[in-house]
Amino acid sequence: MAFGPHLLLAALEGLVTSAVLALTALGLSLVFGVMRVVNVAHGEFFMLGAVLAWAISTAISGHPALGFLAALVLAPLIVGAIALVAERLVLRRLNYNPEATIVATIGMLYIIQQLALTFYGPGARPVEPPFSYRILLPWFGYSGYKLSIIAASAFLLLATWFVLTRTKIGLIMRATQYDSETAQAFGIPVDRVYAGVFALGAMLAAVAAVLIVPISQAHYLMGQDPLLLSFIVVIIGGLGSLRGTLVAAVLIGLSDGIISVFFSPTLAKIIATLLVAMVLVFRPQGLFGTASR
């Protein structure tokens, strides 16, 4: 294949990766930014979203789009509810102590993974895409559904941005993030904000998973890579910067796709990871972060 189309394909692929990554990372960024806890179980919420999407879409017969849409609504709600329970039962009792929450969320990771293995099984299971339109370009074919993921993700990101910057809920969240003690003094129920943020973060991961599951199957170990990549994106973007998270997601997604055009795949991964690490070495606060807090 000629170089131009090859690059186009790599860029498209990179954008799809970025779109899903941005949503997942945004969820982590909220939890990380507002609550200051490292949620190791974030990837498992992602996995739960995908597994539930499989369960819901197979339970609903008829056109695949019906099952998919049901999953898109229900799976995040269920995951959000689970996260809420986990937050109330465990994290709150730990006073969000950073070290204790790491152990606790590792515990959650084990529990969620084991339950998925027990009830869902070890196999990788596909979910049928809501539509399967193949876009025929002069050089290669491309999945129409994949392009729709980019659009859906962009819409959801915009919606989140709107909530965060233009609504009272967003204002409360930002106030809590900025200084939780002062927020408390001003009568903001910090406790409930934390619960809501934790649930919202999990829901964003679940939505991302539902979107991706028609192209990459649900599997009980699928949570690890999104977790690691999300951490990277959040920190590279700059803690607490929505814009930074988005830019970093696009940067990492695209670089992963495009570097693979020039180097052998494993070498490409090495170079991409090293480059991103170096960004952080020379700009520790991240691309859009303010000086360390």
Binding site: V38, L228, F231, I235, T266, A277, V281, Q285, G286, S292
Partner: peptide, 24 residues
Amino acid sequence: RTSGVAFMIVTMMFAQVFYLVILY
């Protein structure tokens, strides 16, 4: 050069590079 969470992520990424180098 970094500290806090950035230190955590940087070390994780270097370790990932090391892991990939072993595979490579």
